[in-house]
Write a protein that binds this DNA or RNA. Structure first.
Length: 942
RNA sequence: GGGCCUAUAGCUCAGUUGGUUAGAGCGCGCGCUUGAUAAGCGCGAGGUCGAUAGUUCAAGUCUAUCUAGGCCCA
């Protein structure tokens, strides 16, 4: 046969016809789509369309305005976009105001690097101008990247924590919390350079080797206490330290709860230390470790009272802490809360005094008369001598070890307790209020999230708000120059906040205290009219923590509490808590109703992505190469509440799934090209059974997909829709329908029945996938509209993102049909398996070459097959199906799954119809069309 | 070291209150089709459910321990 003959009846067929391209070309098409969206102001039109509808507020947690976006930031924004688009289509007014965190260390660092200067060499006002510019630059970069991902929102008016209005609110919130009694000044040890006389942030400290004294000191046990050891003589606990000068500030000795301790004899006296470290000490003393008679656990020694090694008027307790190690020392740790971070933390737990009798120059103060006036490192020698005189020094030597130094002057730094501003977590019973609300009022997803934040809230210390930095909102407190009294009240806050609104918080650094204070301000304690300004700034977490006030309460279209916060799981310690503390302080309740967390994006190995390992995937380059929809579909295909793994291979796999969904759309669009939704629909009652069944199936899908979105389980949405496209549509419905669509009369009821359902499926699936495949769904939507935009099915709406979610259609539900078709599909599987066997045997090629005989002893199945007898050839895509008595034939094949079913597949009878390719004995009966079957002859003739 | 989490086919996910032979899709292999064609259809091969111990008549599912990985702390 020649090609011409094959195509003889081609023109009489109704083949699919659609300009919808099979190959997406997303990387090229998406930017064009974005241009249209922004030219048409899609986001504003959505807002306008939903005006007055019930609100759904997803409050954006601000990413840090530094660097380009990575998979973590991309994932989080895309997940938020899924929610906002779904809620919008569901009829909610769901505004999305994105934000950025602009202050803080990383930007300072980048600036210092750029300038080649350190914190103390820059002009604060100039520096802050530069930092502001730097942050703004990255806001712009990230904004463009987020837009490219297809995320819709108020991009032309985001919230920035460095905006003057925002900063003014940050100042006001600090004042309000102060007024309510949440803010206080306390002591906390920080790195301190005695040469530069300044506090140092962790990042300003560099480590270098230094020689320090290493000493072992006895803390005598106070008499008349019960010890778990026998025959003790003058017992004492031995500590080890390399900073003897901190001994005056000692307030406890810390042991580890389950570590083993012993009491051994040293020169006739009993000393107590960790079993593991006894050899270490005795070898230094060049002695043999005595026999250990009894071992006790650390907790058995808890509460013992010891004599203070320096101050004879003091005693100190034995406490327990997890930071005690057996790397070195004695397992008994000298604890001075004013001189070390871990000491401070454990001190908070045991309510120890934070003392730091050292001034800014590193000189002992008059609080320690024995050493006052001496520099701390010189004090080391004096103290060692003093301990030797008291007979409590066991051993001393010099060791070289890694020690923190100032990055500017390279001199060794010390830990010194300084005054810092704190937020009191327990004021006004806040902690229990919060715990109650977190437990009862807030919904946490995944569920374990609640336990995680509760355990943190129960144990967390007060929030240290002070930072010795430049780029941030100043702590708006004044001090009397004469008596040092602090000045902070509603008047000073209002005045300063007003200035900040106009000039930004830079004003704190560019103006004098007098200019920032209300006129005629005088110290209430001493009447002095001169003030100095606090030099510390606020922790950046305080900035973002006030967003519920500065954004949700300030913007007319938003409200507090938000319906949803959706952030990475690291925010349990970060934003979830900071905003919770601020919101509870201000309003007495959490700022959110539901909190969803996403996990981390990892490389395919399950390990962190890193550039050095080359397993780093850049979301921007995925957009450029594969398209944002592929990235979106990937984030929509994984369970993001856990950690997720990304790699080129995984993206490729998702791209395969994408193509399947896309081709399904192409088939749907191609087969409704000549269908007019205004005039051609077939009434539900008159639809063919298979078509009715598909509407049932579609409605079930709609229900499940909607539920999955409402539970924020997008990966279920993906699987549901993908499986529907693959199994229900592509493998079954579409394949079966080809005969009806291509062969039957174009305007006949059989074909229109199918098209009625195809159009409905096409419109609805487009909507169901639109929140995830935002670009592709819009593309399909526009092809539907180009074909025929109809009010009757809502396709008159200009963008799928403005459209409303498919409505529930109870009348489509037909459980009888479902159960019928479940049996028919099972029967079909048996037939297909048998067809494959005959195909292997060379009896048939195409399934249309086959005739199928069926028989079953299962009466229910038999009745069902009889009921659908006329549909069966189409269902199996074969030319003939016969239900015949078992005894009429031999050589039945027994069903694989349906054991009661017997089948015979053989070559179909008759000739192949040149038009429909079915085999039929009617081919040749018609004189005019001798190569056609009866059905085709009639259709062609009409 | 502590708090919390994760672990089912090569991959992404299902697996109800413990109950027959652990499912789906993708990918892979083989074949069909050439009227969804850089498509479509079919069949098939893939799993000691991270490991070990325990509870039970019965464990992917409950308990304990361990291993690997993650987040946050110290």
């Amino acid at each position: 046969m020649s090609a011409k003959e094959i195509n003889k009846y081609q023109d009489s067929l109704n083949l699919p016809d659609s300009p919808f391209p099979m190959r997406a070309g997303l990387a090229k098409q998406e930017p064009l789509r974005l241009e249209k969206w922004y030219a048409e102001k899609l986001y504003s039109r959505i807002r306008e369309a939903r005006k007055g509808a019930e609100k759904f507020i997803l409050h954006d947690g601000p990413p840090y305005a530094n660097g380009k976006i990575h998979n973590g930031t991309a994932m989080n924004k895309i997940l938020k976009d899924f929610v906002v688009k779904f809620k919008t289509m569901s009829g909610f007014d769901a505004p999305y105001v994105p934000g950025w965190d602009c202050h803080g260390m990383p930007i300072e660092h980048a600036m210092f690097k750029e300038l080649g200067k350190s914190k103390h060499e820059v002009d604060r006002v100039e520096f802050r101008k530069g930092a502001r510019k730097y942050a703004a630059k990255f806001v712009d970069i990230q904004r463009e990247q987020f837009k490219r991902l297809g995320v819709l929102g108020e991009w032309d008016n985001p919230y920035l924590t460095m905006n003057p209005n925002y900063e003014a609110d940050t100042v006001r919130v600090f004042g309000e919390l102060y007024e309510k009694g949440y803010i206080y000044k306390g002591l906390k040890p920080i790195h301190w350079c005695t040469s530069c006389e300044t506090a140092l942030a962790e990042a300003e400290v560099e480590y270098a080797d230094r020689t320090s004294p290493s000493i072992f000191v006895k803390f005598p046990v106070l008499p008349d206490q019960e010890l778990p050891f026998e025959n003790c003589n003058n017992p004492s606990v031995v500590i080890w330290t390399t900073t003897p000068w901190t001994l005056p500030a000692n307030r406890a000795v810390c042991l580890k709860e389950d570590l083993e301790y012993c009491a051994v004899d040293l020169d006739g006296e009993t000393i107590i230390l960790a079993v593991e470290l006894a050899d270490n000490l005795f070898s230094k003393l060049e002695k043999t470790t005595p026999e250990i008679l009894k071992i006790v656990k650390g907790f058995e020694l808890q509460g013992l009272i010891l004599k203070h090694p320096v101050n004879d008027n003091l005693t100190v307790p034995i406490i327990l802490g997890d930071h005690v190690t057996t790397d070195t020392g004695t397992g008994c740790v000298h604890t001075a809360p004013g001189h070390g971070q871990e000491d401070y933390q454990i001190g908070l737990k045991y309510n120890l005094d934070v003392v730091s009798p050292v001034n800014e120059k590193g000189i002992f103060t008059d609080d320690i008369p024995e050493y006052s006036g001496n520099f701390v490192f010189k004090g080391n020698k004096l103290i060692i001598e003093h301990l030797r005189e008291k007979g409590i020094l066991i051993f001393t030597e010099n060791i070289s070890h890694s020690y923190p130094h100032c990055w500017r002057c390279h001199k060794p730094v010390i830990f010194r307790a300084t005054e810092q501003w704190f937020m009191n977590v327990d004021a006004n019973d806040m902690r229990s209020t919060i715990i109650e609300a977190v437990d009862k009022k807030v919904k946490w997803l995944p569920a374990a999230s609640k336990q995680r934040i509760l355990s943190m809230l129960k144990l967390r210390p007060d929030w240290c708000l002070s930072r010795q930095r430049i780029w941030g909102v100043p702590i708006p407190v004044f001090y009397c120059k004469k008596c040092g009294a602090e000045l902070l009240n509603k008047n000073t806050i209002d005045k300063f906040a007003g200035i900040v609104e106009k000039e930004s918080s830079d004003a704190w650094f560019s103006h004098s205290a007098e200019k920032l204070l209300p006129e005629n301000t005088a110290c209430s304690k001493c009447g002095c009219v001169e003030f100095r300004k606090e030099t510390d700034i606020l922790d950046v977490w305080f900035d973002s923590g006030v967003s519920n006030r500065a954004v949700l309460e300030r913007r007319e279209q938003l409200h507090v509490p938000a319906d949803l916060y959706l952030e990475g799981s690291d925010q349990h310690r970060g934003w979830f808590q900071s905003s919770l503390l601020v919101s509870t302080g201000l309003n007495g309740e959490p700022p959110y109703k539901t909190v969803v967390t996403n996990g981390w994006t990892l490389a395919a190995s399950g390990e962190k992505e890193s550039k050095s390992k080359g397993n780093f995937i850049d979301p921007a380059s995925v957009c450029d190469k594969m398209g944002a929809d592929i990235l979106r579909l990937w984030f929509g295909s994984v369970n993001y509440m856990q950690d997720v793994q990304i790699s080129q291979e995984l993206l490729k796999q998702v791209a395969d799934s994408y193509r399947r969904i896309r081709n399904t759309f192409k088939f749907l669009l191609g087969n409704i090209h000549d269908y007019n939704p205004e005039t051609d629909p077939v009434d539900y009652e008159e639809l063919l059974p298979l078509d009715k069944y598909m509407l049932h199936s579609l409605e079930k899908l709609r229900g499940k997909v909607t539920e999955a979105y409402n539970e924020y389980k997008f990966y279920r949405v993906f699987h549901l829709i993908h499986d529907f496209c693959t199994v229900e549509l592509s493998a079954r419905y579409c394949d079966i329908l080809k005969d009806r669509l291509y062969i039957e009369a174009a305007e006949g009821k059989k074909r229109r029945s199918a098209q009625t359902v195809l159009r409905k499926i096409c419109v609805d699936i487009t909507k169901l996938i639109a929140p995830i495949l935002s670009f592709t769904a819009e593309e399909v939507w526009q092809y539907i509209r180009e074909n025929s935009a109809s009010e009757s099915d809502g396709t008159n709406i200009k963008s799928v993102h403005l459209a409303l979610w498919p409505e529930k259609q109870e009348n489509y539900i037909n459980e009888t049909l479902e159960s019928d078709y479940n049996s028919l599909w099972a029967t079909r599987d048996e037939v297909l398996r048998e067809l494959e066997i005959k195909r292997r045997d060379g009896i048939i090629g195409s399934s249309l070459e086959a005739a199928v005989s069926l028989n079953t002893r299962d009466e229910k199945l038999n009745a069902l097959l009889a009921k659908y007898e006329n549909e069966l050839p189409a269902l199996f895509i074969v030319s003939q199906v016969e239900l015949i008595p078992e005894e009429n034939r031999k050589n039945w094949s027994v069903g694989h799954e349906l054991k009661a079913l017997k089948t015979i597949v053989e070559k179909a009878k008759g000739e192949k119809c040149a038009r429909c390719w079915n085999y039929s004995e009617s081919v040749g009966e018609n004189n005019k069309y001798s190569d056609l079957c009866a059905r085709c002859a009639e259709i062609v003739n009409s």
